[in-house]
Amino acid sequence: MRDLFSLEGKTAVVTGASSGLGARFASVLASAGATVFAAARRVDRLRELGVGVVSCDVSVEADRVRLAETAFAETGRFDILVNNAGVPGETQAAEETADSFASVLAVNLVAPFHLAQLMASRGGTSIINVASILGLVSAAPFGGASYAASKAGLIGLTRELAGQWGGAGVRVNALAPGWFRTEMTEDLFSDERSSRWVDRNTMLKRGGEVGELDGALLFLASDASSYCTGQVMVVDGGWTAR
């Protein structure tokens, strides 16, 4: 299994790497042998990761191009892309402006699309789009319209790119986490009632723990999943299987 999951000699880019999940993704890929370029706006929070750091605002086209060029120029390859950067948007649909909605899509959907293009044209093999269970089901009053739409869009994008680029050897899959403790879910988990609501409605009766996306990430990034493309891997303790 270890060899199967090996990323020795591969180059990987992780966006949104200053967040909890993104930082974890970067270090997990690095520990499997990949040369990792961690991209985020807040680079001061990336130094401790021990991987290559690129300052990048994924909503800025020039930044995306620079990120891809940096990874490719330094290692001569760009095998794995983890589109993890995301913003939450407004919770209440009635209060969200069209501009705010569009800005969420710019980060959560347009940027992953463009980065995927930049990666595929450099010989990439595995794209992992970090979606969410909120791209599959509503979790009102949590979640949000732009966020849910962007994540559902990312899942559609995953299938379409898989269909178009499979012949070129590019696999494209989505990873849909359920309720993990992250900056975005801090309020949810710190409220006892909401936290109990998560436990009660999850088949495994708890929220996700740090590290419980490691296996899914490595499976999708590595040759262990060499026949898997266009899929959504849901890691949610059974939330959406109800």
Partner: peptide, 18 residues
């Protein structure tokens, strides 16, 4: 490695159903 996955179907079809 899949300790928080349950109730899921992992499709391995080379993209056929996509």
């Amino acid at each position: 490695a899949s300790s928080w996955m349950t109730g899921q179907a992992l499709v391995l079809d080379g993209g056929a159903t996509a």
